[in-house]
Simulated assay, not measured.
Amino acid sequence: MRKAENVIVGISIGDLNGIGGEIVLKTLEDVRMLEFFTPVIFASVKTITFLKNHFDLDISFNGINNLDQIITGKINVFNVWNDRVDINFGQEDMVIGEFAIKSLFAATKALKEGAIDVLVTAPINKQTIQSEAFNFPGHTDYLAQELDGESLMFMVSNDLRIGLLTDHVPVKDIANNITPQLIESKVNTVYTSLQKDFNIRRPKIAVLGINPHTGDNGVIGKEDDEIMRPTLKALNDNGKLVYGPYAADSFFGSGNYKNFDAIIAAYHDQGLIPFKTLSFGSGVNYTAGLSKIRTSPDHGTAFEIAGKGEANINSFKEAVFLALKLYENRMENAELSKNPLVTPQKKI
């Protein structure tokens, strides 16, 4: 396993008109960060120089054109492009969206090839990234295609982990998308991630209901009784500590979430609203279930404050440290699987 400073953290720059560049560089301005990992920013020296000067940051970096030129203990900037980029903070711009995708493509390729160990993505704008080359709602769906496994949006903070059955799905389509197969797949992904990534040997998981009051015995909807309950019972009967469905309206206010290692919400806002209420600014979006580790801050491009020097770096910093911790846990588990403890035979 690599020493801490030798772990290579790839960083996709996100939407350059948003706060991504600011939070990345402000995080790395603290030279102590380089004691924990070696960063590689996927952008260009010209672009990073512009951002450094705009925000008046005391930061130096090593420009590279090949990933074998990475210098440990330095901030490395991989030149994905050499074009001049016209950055207009706070503006939606399809051309800027193309640069965000170029950065993501290059970083993902490096991750797949093992040139970087983990990927941390700065926020993108979901509208300006759309093109013939990129037809996905966001990072998660693209990475699910590129990296092996069953992807799951997993929101993580110190004492709260929330996964989603459905993520970027219109509200009108949620119930039709939730099937026994989907529930089983997502529960298994969360369960495996808790074991492999978070070192929780016997995870305890709560699942929230689809309908208000979990359908009130079919009065407000039958999906919880006909789909959710039988599937969760079958999973529980097979040995997984999976419970629910729980009524979402009281689950967090009552503090019941503290009794579980993870919660699975039926849809995006059911999970993200309580998560961001309880953890905003310190939470991390982790794409669980993939062959490689990817994290991101729990916020978007924040166009309204972009370029003003007001962005909070805490969530991005937490995303970096979570990626490092998950990488360490995976490496330790891989080593243990190669050298399992031998149970002494009982003497007769």
Score class of each variant (00 low, 15 high):
Leu290Pro: 01
Ile87Val: 11
Lys196Ala: 12
Arg201Cys: 08
Ile75Asp: 13
Thr166Ala: 09
Gln130Trp: 13
Thr121Pro: 01
Ile227Tyr: 09
Leu51Met: 02
Gly253Gln: 00
Asn217Phe: 00
Glu5Cys: 15
Val171Ser: 10
Gly253Trp: 00
Ser250Cys: 11
Thr295Asp: 08
Thr189Gly: 00
Glu29Gly: 13
Ser296Gln: 06
Asn236Cys: 08
Thr287Ile: 06
Asp86Cys: 03
Leu272Ala: 06
Gly90Glu: 02
Gly283Lys: 14
Leu324Arg: 07
Gln127Pro: 00
Glu146Ser: 15
Lys74Gly: 10
Glu29Trp: 13
Thr166Trp: 14
Lys276Tyr: 11
Thr47Phe: 09
Pro137Val: 00
Asp141Val: 01
Gln345His: 12
Lys240Asp: 05
Tyr246Trp: 12
Leu182Lys: 15
Asp298Gly: 08
Ile70Met: 04
Val77Met: 04
Tyr286Ser: 12
Thr128Leu: 00
Lys102Ala: 08
Asp159Tyr: 10
Gln181Tyr: 14
Asp167Val: 12
Ala323Gly: 12
Lys26Gln: 05
Val169Thr: 06
Gln270His: 08
Asp237Ser: 11
Val171Asp: 12
Ala266Ser: 15
Leu336Phe: 15
Tyr191Ala: 01
Asp58Tyr: 02
Glu328Asp: 06
Glu22Ile: 12
Gln195Gly: 03
Gly239Asp: 14
Leu67Asp: 12
Ile263Val: 15
Val187Ser: 00
Leu272Pro: 10
Ser60His: 05
Leu57His: 08
Ala133Asn: 10
Ala43Phe: 01
Glu146Met: 15
Ser250Met: 13
Thr121Ser: 06
Ser60Leu: 09
Phe55Met: 01
Lys346Asn: 11
Glu92Trp: 01
Tyr327Trp: 14
Val85Leu: 11
Gly138Phe: 02
Ala144Asp: 13
Ile273Thr: 14
Leu241Ser: 15
Leu51Ser: 10
Val31Ile: 14
Asp167Leu: 03
Glu92Gln: 05
Gly283Asn: 09
